[in-house]
Each structure stands twice: as C-alpha cells, then as structure tokens.
C-alpha cells in the first residue's frame, strides 16, 4: 500500500516515514507543497497524509487541486489547528479525516486502516484473540471456555481492543470511540485506567498467557505473546 506524506517539518516527516514503513506501508515523503502537489497529480497513491500549514502552497490549495482532478484518493489532514472552523474548512475541501497535532501514532494508524478499508464493513460478530472469544450478539465473553462476566463498559472496551487486536490503542482513541467524548480536555484518563485494570483482573489474572498489555506513555494493546 502506497502512502504519500506531505509534511514540511522534517522530524515529523521522518517519524511518519519510519513509523509507517515499520507497519509495512510503502511511503513517499514530499517536504514542500509544490512537490507534494506534483506527486499527487502524477502518481497513484492509496492514501495521502497532508499537513495543512506548508510553505509555498497551502494544504487546502493542494487538496482543492486534487479534488478538482476528481481523484477519490483518501486524504487525511494533519494540522495543529483544531478550531471547529478549521476542521470544517478541511472537511469541506474534500478531506476524508482530520487529525490534530500532536497526535498519537496508534490513532494515526487506526485512522489509516479505517480509510483504506473504506467500503468494506468490518463488523465481524465473533471476535477471537488466542483463547479469548467474544460473541457480539449474545454479548458473551469466554476465555479458555470459561465465562467472563463483564459490565457494559468493560464489554465495549474489550470489544474495541479486540477489533484493534495487534494494534496499539491510545487513551485518546478510547475517550473518543468508547466513551464518546469529543472534548479533548475532559479528565478521563484515570477512569480509563481503572476500567482497564478491572478488565485485566477479570480476563488475564488467572492466566499465565497475558493478552492485555499496557505500553507506557502510549496506550494499550491486546495481542498474544508478551512482547508488545
């Protein structure tokens, strides 16, 4: 999968290139608006990551140019501006999603996954990680055939982690997608931590093979094996 990154800040561009490459993406970086626009017009990409504040040509201009050519390549905007008007402007100009800097890398990966599988509905009704199984219809969770009784929030949390299995989930993603709070400043980190601890006690405590891992400073990951 080929991703074009248009970002002038070289450290961020490098981090994006390395991070995305390590996830198996093929990454091309453009450091100016002109280069980015030229590349976007002359080659085919599966996704474009676009910084809005670029020297030379603004991100919105590039976006307009791409959309004028009627290219329906998914575009994810990265920007430090998070006022509602800025979001609206970006989305109105044809962006598919919007991520405010500083963003959590796991969240960027999750958004990229969501954008590139657009159209294919990912609504498996039975989820499985190692011997942990979840039935989304009967809302039954078992581990090694043993029932695990979860509260509503714990179930939602586990479902989200299972749907993102193998990928890191940041607290911000949980606030947004599980707690459905859009306000970035609401103090919910403690709440999430306590919920995760309880979930862990129910599903991992009795087993040697731990599935739910905390990655310090980043978030949580549900996967087999100790190595996060």
């Amino acid at each position: 999968m080929h991703i074009l990154v248009i970002e002038d800040e070289s450290k961020v561009a490098k981090a994006l290139r390395d991070g995305l490459a390590s996830e198996g993406y093929n990454v091309t970086v453009a450091q100016t608006g002109e280069d980015g626009f030229f590349l976007a017009m002359s080659q085919t990409f599966d996704l474009i990551l676009l910084d809005l504040m670029l020297p030379g040509r603004s991100g919105i201009e590039i976006l307009n140019g791409i959309r004028r050519k009627n290219r329906d390549v998914p575009v994810l905007i990265l920007t430090a501006k998070d006022a509602i008007e800025d979001r609206v402007l970006g989305l109105d100009s044809g962006a598919d999603d919007y991520l405010v800097k500083p963003f959590a890398f796991p969240e960027l990966l999750a958004r990229i996954r969501a954008l590139t599988r657009r159209g294919r509905i990912d609504l498996a009704l039975k989820l499985k990680v190692a011997n942990l199984e979840m039935d989304c219809v009967t809302r039954k969770v078992t581990r090694d055939k043993r029932d695990i009784l979860l509260t509503g929030k714990e179930f939602e949390l586990l479902e989200y982690l299972m749907r993102h299995q193998g990928h890191v989930v940041s607290r911000e993603m949980l606030v947004h997608d599980v707690w459905h709070v859009t306000d970035r400043a609401t103090p919910l980190d403690n709440v999430i931590d306590v919920h995760v601890n309880r979930l862990r006690a129910k599903m991992d405590a009795d087993f040697d093979n731990k599935l739910l891992h905390t990655i310090r400073g980043v978030g949580f990951i549900l996967k087999e094996g100790d190595e996060p």
């Binding site: 500083p102 607290r171 990655i215 310090r216 400073g217 980043v218």
Partner: peptide, 8 residues
C-alpha cells in the same frame, strides 16, 4: 514511555 507520559 516516561517521556511520552510527560508529552501527554
């Protein structure tokens, strides 16, 4: 990780 916590 600790640096990332401070960043947060």
């Amino acid at each position: 990780g600790s640096m990332l916590e401070e960043t947060e």
